[in-house]
Write a protein that binds this DNA or RNA. Structure first.
Length: 660
DNA sequence: ACGATTTTCAGCATC
DNA sequence: TGAAAATCGT
């Protein structure tokens, strides 16, 4: 299939900054991949054409699709990565410019939270700590270092956060570590202050493509600006109507900013939708027309009208789930449709429960999107912490994690003394544990335990130079006693098997990806950025997903469930008057459907322990009435109504004949 | 240092 | 309501 004129223009235009407004289902990934191929044909070196996405999954998909257009080796060398992975790459090459040493660690969200907790006044509740952590992140998003944040603080809260930010940063530097936000913030600061480095990277990356541009935050935007320089050789692809992540820092205003910062910006709109039926698309357009728009855009579809949308009115969530599960089972049976053509989408994760139950009862295979990411699982993080300590002896965060996992007779008392010594000598915990001094301060048994552990770490560190990452991991699991630790502490055999399997999966991953080129140190940092290893796409199953996680996916048959006021739109959003983003969420969900779309709501719901009456979502009223049929909570009554309508029609005809 | 009990809380979740 | 965290008690 060839490109349509707008797509072709978006692919061919390379002379200056370009913003592609890509409506839902308008073939934007295709445009990006074709454009990469086009850039390579017109002389760009593959290693200079960077494509930036927000998730690993998107990056992987992009690389695969480009691989089908161009040679395999060129696809391999293309820098297709997330913003954070690009930031990491920059920092690994420029570590000396930002006060880091090679082998630095990346603290994950949990580590960072623990650090904040450690530094903040004792007794603060998690949400207060979270707020402070959030303010530190916000300062970085605004491009402020601790001093600047202190100067900019407007309230006692912000002052407290700024002081914490300073201590937090000092601690990270001591650990030779950084957090996720630093992966954007530090390269940005570096480029802002160092012309030589900035120019070098501008030359290194000759063209930039950014996907899901509406999801960028301010720091990412500034980093982008530094990378493309004044030449503005970039293509940003986005859709303001699909901006659903403002709550976690995305700034859709960046779309406007782009036009302001680059007056020569060219705008291309992709308005032909290749996904949805005419009725579904009309419904989506009608809904989103209720929002204010930065750019006017009218999606159209060459597909036929398709079937009417249905609204199911149910008694409660059990009824809703059972009914939909039965519909899916029935459709699959009669039309021989693969299970993976069906999706059930909902606002909140908790809503999946009723549906899982109902589907299980009917033996319908299903897959729930999301859940705990692979690298958030305790055993994977433990093993990663072992690697971190080997690579970075200053990583106290990782040291604290492994020193007591498994238990090895080193208690909190011993660790306190160790921390004290480390603090007074300016040493990291791992280094202090190797010192002679600490052993003099301890009783015989803990001293022996600590010496033993320090000795073992030293041996592993030597092994690390000769073994590849996978072999090293296997060695660590055995020699650290971690394998036995799982046997002893995890009682449930199924859970134990799962944990062993997770470790094996990590090893397999390292076998496949850890060969050669990257030093173990670089690899350890890269692992921290990996989300779910993609074993989730286990083939043929009904998809259960939140609306957020469904972005970018498409299904022939979609059920959009729990459409009640308070759920979608969410209650908090109603109270704060933030209906726009909720509506976009609804819009994104509608446009996942190719052939049929069914919307359901329940009259009563079990919420906070009691049965509460529910109002249908106000968004349902925004659907074009002519494209919607309603089905009540009683299919028989619906049949009766249909018959009644039929006979009324007959009666009218009879009247006509009688009168004529 | 752990397991049992009480209390709290209830939205999405990337890297 | 029910899960997860906080707290208590040994």
């Amino acid at each position: 299939m060839s490109l349509n004129p707008a797509q072709r223009e978006a692919v061919a235009y390379c002379d200056g900054p370009l913003l592609v407004l890509a409506g839902a289902g308008s073939g934007k990934t295709r445009v990006i991949t074709e454009k990469i191929a086009h850039l390579l044909r017109s002389g760009h070196r593959p290693e200079g054409v960077a494509a930036i996405t927000f998730t690993n999954k998107a990056a992987k998909e992009m690389r695969e699709r480009v691989g089908k257009l161009i040679s395999r080796e060129a696809a391999e060398t293309l820098p297709v990565s997330t913003f954070h992975a690009l930031g990491l790459r920059i920092l690994q090459q420029e570590a000396n410019h930002v006060g880091l040493r090679r082998g630095f660690s990346i603290l994950d969200a949990e580590d960072a939270f623990a650090l904040v907790k450690d530094l903040a006044p004792a007794g603060l509740k998690p949400d207060a700590l979270d707020l402070l952590r959030g303010l530190i992140g916000k300062a970085k998003d605004n491009g402020l270092d601790p001093d600047e944040a202190l100067a900019a603080a407007r309230s006692p809260r912000e002052l407290q956060a700024a002081e914490l930010y300073a201590a937090y940063t000092r601690r990270l530097r001591n650990f030779n570590a950084l957090d996720f936000d630093d992966l954007i913030f530090l390269p940005e600061r570096l480029f802002a202050s160092n012309d030589e480095v900035r120019t070098r990277w501008q030359q290194k990356l000759s063209y930039l493509l950014v996907d899901e541009y509406q999801d960028t935050n301010r720091a990412q935007y500034r980093l982008l600006k530094h990378l493309v320089g004044e030449r503005g050789r970039f293509t940003a692809v986005g859709d303001d109507d699909q901006s659903i992540y403002a709550w976690r820092g995305a700034n859709p205003e960046n779309l406007n900013e782009l036009a302001r910062d680059y007056p020569q910006l060219k705008l291309v709109k992709l308005e032909q939708n290749y996904r949805c039926s005419g009725r579904i698309l009309r419904a989506a357009n009608a809904v989103i027309a209720n929002n204010a728009h930065l750019f006017e855009k009218k999606l159209w579809s060459a597909h036929g009208e398709g079937e009417s949308l249905r609204i199911l009115q149910c008694k409660d969530e059990t009824h809703e789930a059972e009914r939909i599960a039965a519909e899916i089972a029935h459709l699959q049976q009669t039309r021989k449709t693969p299970w993976s053509d069906f999706a059930i989408l909902y606002r909140g994760n908790f809503q999946s429960r009723a549906f899982e139950q109902a589907l299980r009862l009917l033996r319908v295979p299903y897959h729930v999107s999301g859940g705990t990411a692979f690298f958030d699982r305790a055993e994977v993080r433990d093993l990663l912490a072992y690697l971190r300590v080997l690579v970075n002896p200053d990583d106290d965060s990782a040291f604290l994690r492994i020193v007591q996992t498994p238990k090895r007779d080193i208690g909190t008392g011993t660790l306190e003394k160790l921390a004290q010594l480390a603090g007074s000598r300016g040493l990291s915990l791992a280094r202090a544990a190797e010192s002679m001094e600490i052993h003099k301060q301890l009783a015989a048994r803990p001293a022996a335990a600590l010496a033993n552990f320090a000795e073992q770490v030293k041996r592993w560190r030597i092994s690390a130079t000769s073994l590849d990452a996978a072999a090293l991991c296997e060695k660590l699991i055995q020699e650290s006693g971690y394998a036995q630790h799982l046997e002893a502490t995890v009682k449930d055999p199924a859970a134990r098997a799962r944990r062993h399997a997770n470790l094996q999966e990590l090893i397999d991953f390292l076998k496949a990806n850890g060969k050669g080129r990257d030093a173990l140190g670089d690899l350890a940092a890269q692992l921290a950025l990996l989300g779910n290893l993609d074993r989730d796409d286990n083939g043929n199953a009904v998809r259960l997903s939140t609306l957020h996680a469904s972005k970018g996916l498409e299904f022939r048959h979609v059920w959009l469930v729990g459409l009640e006021d308070g759920t979608l739109p969410h209650e908090g959003a109603i109270n704060e008057g933030r209906l726009d983003e909720e509506r976009r969420l609804f819009y994104v969900a509608i446009t996942r459907a190719k052939d049929t779309l069914t919307l359901s709501h329940a009259a009563h719901k079990q919420r906070y322990g009691e049965l509460l009456a529910q109002k249908p979502s106000r968004f349902l009223d925004e659907l074009p009435a002519a494209d919607v049929v309603r089905e009540g909570d009683d299919p028989e009554r619906d049949q009766a109504e249909k018959r009644a309508r039929g006979s009324a029609h007959l009666a009218r005809l009879a009247e006509l004949f009688a009168g004529g």
